[in-house]
Each structure stands twice: as C-alpha cells, then as structure tokens.
Design a protein around this nucleic acid. Structure first.
Length: 897
DNA sequence: CTCAGCCAGTCCGTTGTGTAACC
DNA sequence: CGGTTACACAACGGACTGGCTGA
C-alpha cells in the first residue's frame, strides 16, 4: 500500500479499472480481482479491509486476531474481491466477524435454531436425516474418510473385479503358465543365490531373477561391436557392489538408528562435484533462417537461439496457438533483438523484426524436425556409444558423499534455456527461460571438501557451507524468480528419512483424529465466523482431501485449494449436496458432487451469502497459515497436507486389510491396483486422456464385434452339419446379435476382405523384392491377380452367406464338437477383452503413480506383498524399490499403519 | 498339411526424467 | 526459502503379430 490513507478509500470504485498495473506488459493481464497479499504491488489501489480489521483492536473472539502475523496476512483478505466493500454490506454482514450471539440481535442470518430462515430453500419437514455422526469421527478409527465418489467407484470396481476374476479363471491355462513362470523364477532365486553368494543375495531378489532370466534366454551372441557398458550403469553397479560388501559386514540402516539431534543440522561433511551445464548453443545452418516478411534473415546467435526455441515447437499447437504464449515470446524475442541487434538479409541489409505476424519459423522448424529424425535413425551402436560417452562424462556428478556415505544426486543438470511453458492459463507462458551462468550459481558444500571448479573463465556466485540445507547447488530462475535446487535422489538416506517422517506424522494423526473431528464438528456451529469457517474448511480437507489453498499472485495461473475457494467454485444443491468445480494444482480440474453434513451445507450457504458473488472468497475469514496454526495445536507439525497423507494411507490400509487372500498373483495385483485407484481418485490425481484413447477403444470394440461375428458363423456351420440343432438349441441361439446390423456386417466383411487383399499384396511385393535382390525377374501383375482371387472368393462367400443365411462348414474334419470347443475359446477371448476394455476406459484419466509415490505408506504395500506372497517387484518398479528400501527392509507382515 | 517355436518389427503400457506448482 | 507433490513426455522394454521353418 503506497499510503495508509488509501486503506480507507472506498473500494466501491471498482478495483479493476482503478488499477494501473506496473506490470501491464503482461499479456491480457486479467482484471485485478484480488488485492496483493502485501498490499504494495498496486500503488494507488485501495485495499479495503472489512470491519474486522478496522475494529482490529476490539476484543474479538476470533483467535486469529491474537496473532500478529495472521493479522497481517488477513488484512488483505478482509476485502471482497469483487469490488464491494464490507462497508457496503448489510448490517448483518457488517457484524460479520463479531460473535454471532451479538449478531442475532440485528440479523437472523446465523441463527442455528432457525433453519428455515437460514435456508429457505429447505423445507424443514423434508430435511433428510443428519449424516450419520459416525462418518465424522466422533470416535473410533473406523471413521471412514471415503466419500461418495469412492463408494460409487468401489461398487464399480468390485463389479469389474468379479468379471475379471471370472475372465481370468476362464483363461486359466494361460495364467497358470504365467504363474508357474513366476514361481519357478522365485524358486530359482534360492539356488542361484547360493551358488553365487557374490550377488545381492537378499530380499528383493531383483538381481537373481534378472540372472535367472538371463540364464533362460539362450545366450545371445553379443554384437561384435558391443559398445562398452555405459558408465552410468557401471557406476550404479559399482555402488551396488559396494553396498553388497558393506551389507556383508554392516549396511547403514538409518531407520534402525536412534533419532538424534533436533533435525536442523542435516549433515556434517558433504562432498560433491557440482553441476553439468547444458551444451552451448549451436547456430543454425543457412538453410534454416527465420523468414521475415518473405526475406531470410540472419540473426545474431543469441537472438537466433530464441527464434529456435519457438521454431522447434511449431507443431505444438497448445503453445503456438495460445495468444499469451505468442505475445510473451515475441516480447522477449524483440527485447533480445533490441539488445543484441536485429538481423541482416543475404546482402547484409539490416532487417528490423517488428511484427510477429511477419515471422515465418517454418524453416527452423523443418530443420529441427529433420535433425531429430536423423538422430533417431542412427544405427543403434552409434547411439549407444554416444550415450556411454555422455554417461561417462556425467558419472562424477551422479553421486556425492554425505557424511561419508555415497549418495545419489537427483538432478545434477542445470535446466537448459527455452520457452517457459506454465501449466494451465499461466500469464507468463512463452517467456524466455534464460541460460543459467555459473555466476548465478551458489554451491553448498562441506567446509573441508574441495569446491568444484566452475567452467573455465567463470566463477560461482557464492560458496556456502549451510549444514541446515539439504541442497548441493542452487540458482534463481528468471521467470518467477523461483529458486532451483540440486538435491539428492529419492533413494538417498536423507530423502528416505524425511519420507519416513512424513508417514510417521500421518500415523500420529491417527491418535488425534477423533478429537479433531469431534472439535470441528462442534465448531461447525461456532458463533465466531472465523472459527466456523475454519471448522468447515477442515471438514472439507478431511473428507474430500482438498489441498490447503494458499493465496496466489497475479503472475500465476488462477488455481485454488480449500482456503482460496471462490463463490463460483461451489454450488449448493439442497438439501445437502455440494458441487465442487474448480481448477486445483497444476490446473487440474476438480469436479465432484458430494453429500455433506447438513451443518456444512448450511455454513457454505452462509459463506456464499450476498453481497458475495463471483470472484469472492468463500472462506474470507481464513488463511492457510491460520488454519495450519490451529491444526498444530492438536499435534506438533500437523498441517492440511498431513490430512491428505493420512486419509490416503488410511484408505489404502483399510482396503488392503479387508482384501481376500485368494486368487492368482495377477488377481492379487489387480486387487491392489484397484485399491490404489481408489486412493488416486480420492486425491484427484488425473492424467490427460491420450489422444488415441477413443480410437483405441473403438478398435477394441470392433475386435470384440469381430469375434462375436465369428461365433455366429461357427454356429451357422454347426447348423450346416446338423440342421436338427436348430430345434435342440432353439432358434435364438443361431441369431446374430442385434447390434450387429446388416450394415455393420457388410462393412465388417468388406474390411476382412480388404485385410486379406492387403496381406496378399504385401507378401507379393516382398516376394518380388526378394526375387529382384536375387537377381531374378519379378513376378507379373497376373500372378498377383491370381493370388488375390482368394480374397475375391472370400467376398463371394460372404455375399452368398448373406443371401442364403447359411454358412458352409469350413475346415477339414469339421464336427459339432470341434465347433463347440471353438465357441468356448471365442467366449473366453471376448470376455477377457471386455474386461480389458472396461478397465482401460475407467482408467483413462486416473493417474495411479502420484499416490503410490507420495501418499500411500510403502510399508502397507510391503505388508500386502508379504501377507499375500506377491513379489514386491509387482508393485514397485526398480526406482520405487530403491526409494522405499527403508520400508521394504523394516516391516514384517504384522505391521499396521 | 499343421503346428509349435523362433525372430523381427510394431505397438503400447510402464518407467524414468524434467521441471512446474504447490506449501 | 527449501522442501514435497504433480503432470507431461521421452525412453524403454515387454507383448503381440506375422512370417518363416522344421518336426
């Protein structure tokens, strides 16, 4: 705020127009709907504070007032973002934050006993029974965080699981084969390991099963020019070996060490080799010039590089057709041109790049597409050799020494320059992300360690010895000014420890959850607005796994979480259904309808009450810091995030606990994945539906239809052999399914014929090629025509079948029994395909990975794996096994979340 | 002729990497 | 500020397919 007097200026003058943004160069700057948090960004714009703040000193019941920091943050939140001032509000609203008992005198708004007044839409008589209190954790651990969404999903999945189980059973032969392979492999483990005690003879059995595999596959002669093992792999193997040696004596198991220190000092000694910089810019060849208004232009390399960024992504319509992207890009491009000089044409005449519309990047694009193609098509050996070389050069950066132990570094590469692509509707999309110089880089390293050399002729920005940080290298990025850190990989001790702590914290919540739920259920009726909002928010976070929802600035995409939910994100459907529709983290849409506690419904209605309208925050008396501060009174370190972890793991735990232990390994894996999916749905982890999804589904459906048609033909053949069957089996048995219409039939038959033709033609061409290669004359067209007669005959046959409604029995030794067997096979295939199709479709927009990596306590998976005898490899990939090493080695099957 | 078994090529799901977005 | 969480996309690798061969 530039001047304090502004504080009190009436906001009614409509913020959007009154704003002169210093940053107006940002394309399509959205209308200013919210004040900045610190109140300084928009000089001349008044930020109104609600009566709360004006009365800030008066004794309030609102506990957040006690806290100065919270107050500071809240100041900006007191205002309504649609330009309405609290001063303009009705008397009842003016008393907004005062004890509701007081308000009762002036307004009926929050009178609990007065539901009808409060929610006129709801007829008292028709009020549904209150949501069962049990759902809300008055007491036990049995409180179910599952929501309706999950319940539906559960029913769906269960149904499908049944289908699958059947399909799988019916496909027993295949599966049995598979199962035996699996079993034999795991059995192999033992003798193999015994024979070769050198290899990692322990729990995970990765190596041994790999070895078994190797032994099985017939010793393939290594290609003569076998490129040397990539340095990366070598380095990793070396480490494993070292580990093995150490394991033989004493592997460092931090999870078995006593907890020490206050956790602020993260290391004592730290050695590392710094970072790898991206390769320098390679100027484009003459053929790949930017064409400006029809003239090829030679640009200074620095500008050309930026043009190159754009040209390289010309095929990416999401970017190139986004006006914000183009505007931001061109602004930065022009700025660079103004800085380093515009281009020249072939004769050396200066060309000034003025209009984006006159820029033609297609030549640049073609060049990059071409290069990529070339790179892709190189011989495999060459590719491998290059990779090996690169790995070797980078090997020294892959590991560091942390308190004397070798640890993997996560991201040792400095991010290369390019065009920033923020997710969702990001105001800065298209801006140039600049190349990072050593002079911008800070190194964090042990005092005794050798500081890595900066590239020749350069120096580091700073060298620190901060033992409270876990980062090795840090720099600031130019788009948002965010800090980027090089830290250890997920499988490192330090990351494992903090992962462990995270889940322990979530488990600790179990002890407090009943009390917390009881409290917030009570506080849903609090007479203090701030408390009531807070209770409602905790309810939503607990039940629906919403994120906290911090305030966001103008320079970020407009996404929300619980505390930042706005008027338009929540729709109320009496009697007690709430529809959420908003963009969450990463601009992923959260859409769902929930039935909520009656009191919650009522509260939300109050929080949405006029004069609030679109753009206004629902929880205008609540900030994430106030929320988290309150939560931490229950338990040290408790924040909104912990609820997500807790509810995710808790859900997984209860699903796995109730799982039946029967079935094949594949079935168990599927059961596990189904549980995983429920957690993913709870957390709203989505992925974009693959562009090819629709066609893939269609293809599968068409395949199924083809099989069904085959079934019909076989039945008709049976009839051909034994006409009596018609009576025996009934006429319906021999009818073609109705959805396979005559039109479809014709089309399908045509497709079959065409397929046949293609096959024959392809083979013919191939044969000819062979002949020519052998120095003989190719066959003539006539030969092809003759061969194609097979297809023509097929078409004729179909035609005849369609006409006579009969199908002649095919194949020699045809018998009804044989046909019956064929039918059974077809049925099985159809069933498995149906299940597959359903699975695929249901899974198209659910991402399982995120919850598996971040929310589900890995020990749950380990327990499941042990209890049901499914190798852990079926659940955790190699990297995940490394990441969760602590979990795999630390629990037995009795462990409980 | 049929069929299992093998190989190469293609397809497609999974895994790993990169870095943005969040608290 | 420094950490975790999140998705997209590239790279990888296993499954499937068609063609071929020999029993």
């Amino acid at each position: 705020m530039s001047s304090s007097s502004d504080d009190d200026a009436p906001l009614a003058r409509k913020a959007p127009n009154g704003v002169t943004k210093t940053k107006d160069r940002i394309l399509g700057a959205k209308t200013d709907r919210r004040p900045s948090t610190n109140g300084t960004a928009y000089p001349g714009v008044s930020i109104r504070h609600g009566p709360v703040d004006e009365d800030g000193d008066s004794p309030m019941k609102d506990p957040s007032h006690v806290n100065g920091a919270a107050l500071g943050k809240r100041r900006s939140r007191g205002s309504l973002t649609n330009g309405k001032s609290y001063k303009d509000l009705s008397d009842s609203e003016e008393a907004d934050n005062k004890p509701l008992t007081k308000r009762r005198k002036t307004s009926k708004v929050l009178v609990d006993s007065d539901d009808e007044d409060d929610i006129p839409l709801v007829r008292k008589a028709k009020l549904p029974p209150r949501v069962d209190a049990r759902q809300f954790g008055n007491s036990s651990d049995d409180d179910v965080p599952l929501n309706k969404k999950l319940a539906n999903e559960k029913a769906k999945i269960e149904k499908r699981a049944e289908q699958t189980a059947e399909a799988i059973k019916s496909d027993a032969k295949k599966l049995k084969k598979k199962a035996t392979v699996e079993e034999s492999e795991s059995e192999d483990d033992v003798p193999l390991v015994r024979k070769k005690p050198v290899s990692k003879a322990t729990t995970n059995g990765v190596k041994s099963s790999a070895a078994a595999k190797k032994a099985k596959s017939k010793a393939k002669p290594e290609p003569a020019v076998a490129p040397k093992k990539s340095a990366k792999k070598k380095a990793e193997e070396e480490m494993e070996e070292e580990e093995d040696e150490a394991a033989a004596e004493e592997e460092f198991k931090w999870w078995e060490q006593p907890v020490q220190g206050d956790g602020t000092k993260k290391w004592t000694t730290l050695e590392h080799n710094g970072v790898v910089f991206p390769p320098p810019y390679q100027p484009l060849p003459k053929s790949a010039r930017l064409i400006y208004a029809g003239t090829p232009v030679t640009l200074p390399p620095e500008a050309e590089e930026i043009a190159g960024f754009y040209g390289a992504m010309l095929h990416s319509t999401v970017n190139v057709e986004n006006p914000t992207f183009n505007k931001n890009f061109f602004e930065d491009f022009q700025a660079k041109l103004d800085d380093v000089g515009h281009g020249v044409d072939a004769k050396g005449n200066k060309i000034k790049i003025k209009r984006f519309e006159d820029c033609d990047f297609t030549k640049i694009h073609e060049y990059y597409v071409n290069e990529r193609e070339k790179k892709k098509n190189r011989p495999a050996a060459e590719k491998k050799a290059e990779k090996a070389e690169k790995d070797e050069a980078e090997a020294q950066y892959m590991f560091c020494t942390w308190d004397g132990r070798k640890q993997k570094v996560g991201n040792f590469r400095v991010e290369p320059p390019g065009l920033f692509r923020g997710r969702g509707d990001h105001p800065k999309t298209g801006r140039v992300k600049k190349r990072v110089n050593p002079e911008q880089i800070t190194i964090n390293i042990g005092k005794e360690a050798k500081v890595p050399d900066p590239p020749k002729g350069h120096h580091w920005k700073e060298v620190k010895h901060d033992q409270e940080g876990t980062w090795l290298v840090m720099w600031q990025e130019n788009i948002n000014g965010a800090y980027k850190y090089v830290m250890l990989a997920a499988n490192s001790d330090i990351k494992g420890q903090s992962d462990f702590k995270k889940f322990e914290k979530a488990r600790e919540l179990k002890k407090h959850i009943a009390r917390i739920r009881k409290d917030y259920t009570k506080e849903l009726k609090s007479e203090v607005m701030a408390d009531r909002q807070r209770a409602t928010a905790i309810y939503l976070i607990d039940k629906f796994a919403l994120r906290a929802g911090n305030e966001k600035g103008e320079d970020e995409a407009d996404t929300v979480g619980c505390c930042s939910l706005k008027f338009e994100h929540v729709t109320l459907k009496p009697p007690n259904t709430v529809v959420f529709d908003f963009l969450g983290k990463d601009s992923i849409r959260f859409y769902d309808e929930f039935e909520v506690d009656q009191q919650v419904f009522k509260n939300l209605k109050i929080f949405k009450k006029a004069p609030k309208s679109e753009g206004d925050e629902i929880f205008d008396r609540l900030t994430t810091s106030a929320l988290n501060k309150h939560l931490s009174t229950y338990m040290q370190g408790l924040t909104a995030k912990v609820f997500r972890t807790y509810n995710a793991s808790w859900t997984m735990a209860s699903l796995l606990r109730d799982m039946k232990s029967t079935g094949t390994i594949a079935e168990k894996v599927k059961d596990y994945n189904d549980a995983n999916r429920k957690v993913a749905i709870l957390c709203n982890h989505k992925r974009t539906v693959a562009a090819s999804h629709g066609t893939q589904i269609e293809k599968m459906q068409e395949k199924i239809n083809g099989l069904r048609y085959q079934k019909w033909r076989i039945k008709m053949m049976m009839l051909d052999l034994e006409p009596k069957l018609k009576k025996k089996k009934g006429a319906d048995y021999f009818k073609l399914d109705e959805d396979l219409t005559p039109e479809w039939l014709e089309q399908h038959q045509a497709a079959l014929v065409e397929e046949q033709r293609q096959k024959i033609t392809k083979k013919f061409e191939k044969d000819n090629e062979k002949l020519v290669a052998d120095g003989q004359k190719p066959m003539k067209q006539k030969e092809l025509d003759e061969r194609l007669e097979v297809a023509t005959d097929m078409a004729k046959k179909f035609k005849k079948e369609n006409k006579t409604k009969k199908v002649e029995a095919e194949g020699k030794g045809a018998s009804v029994d044989k046909f019956e067997a064929n039918l059974d096979k077809l049925d099985q295939r159809i069933e498995t395909m149906r299940v597959q199709l359903q699975d695929k479709d249901d899974n198209k927009e659910v991402a399982l990975g995120t919850s598996k990596i971040n929310y589900i306590d890995p020990r749950l998976t380990v327990v499941f794996s042990k209890k049901f005898n499914v190798p852990i490899e079926r659940f955790f990939s190699k990297t995940l096994r490394e990441k969760f090493d602590w979990a795999i080695k630390s629990v037995d099957e009795d462990w409980e979340f």
